[in-house]
């Protein structure tokens, strides 16, 4: 369960926009977070508060396989990413590092600044600002187990 304010983005948000190539020598999420969306949305890194939620359109996270992208978002305190659809490498990477990603066909109904309450287990998003509820696409059981293990590291460790 999580609650936070919405940062709204459009379609095809690529991983170069999330974290530019020149910062990829950095491996620390907190340091990466200082440059998150630096070119695409310069005010973001300064103003994002812990627990913020990103809501986007289609194909979020397209492009490079850099795990620095979900790490930067996690380091910035982003609680989860909701999008109409995700690019697949980003989707895997986010799950693998324990950043919840939710596919929601009704993401368009959510606006910048809305307050959302997200129940990951039930797959329900409550929009407190608009007084609406949205259903999230379900995930295979073993992916839910990866999320419950806090990511793929914990999951693999337990099974090795």
């Amino acid at each position: 369960m999580g609650k936070g304010n919405v940062w709204k983005f459009g379609d095809d948000i690529d991983t170069d926009a999330i974290i530019p190539g020149r910062y990829l020598t950095i491996n620390d999420p907190k340091e990466l977070a200082k440059h998150v969306f630096e070119g695409a949305r310069p005010e973001f890194a300064q103003n994002v508060a812990k627990g913020g939620i990103i809501v986007a359109g289609r194909n979020f996270g397209c492009g490079s396989s850099r795990e620095h992208a979900p790490l930067a978002l996690k380091g910035a305190g982003i609680h989860c990413v909701i999008a109409k659809s995700f690019a697949r490498i980003f989707f895997r990477n986010a799950i693998n590092i324990g950043l919840p990603v939710l596919e929601c066909k009704e993401a368009d109904r959510i606006s910048e600044g809305d307050v959302l309450k997200v129940d990951f287990k039930k797959g329900i998003i409550e929009n407190e600002t608009k007084n609406e509820r949205y259903q999230v696409a379900s995930m295979p059981t073993f992916i839910l187990k990866i999320i419950e293990s806090g990511g793929l590291i914990g999951y693999t460790k337990a099974r090795l």
Binding site: S64, S65, E67, I97, L152, T156
Partner: peptide, 28 residues
């Protein structure tokens, strides 16, 4: 662990890009 790993399909392999944590798990 690079998205353009899909290139090697040119030789009839199934090759695909993954992230660093997938790579870590594969290493193990």
């Amino acid at each position: 662990s690079d998205s353009h790993t899909c290139t090697y399909g040119a030789l009839g392999a199934f090759s695909t890009g993954v992230g660093s944590t997938d790579m870590a798990s594969a290493f193990a």
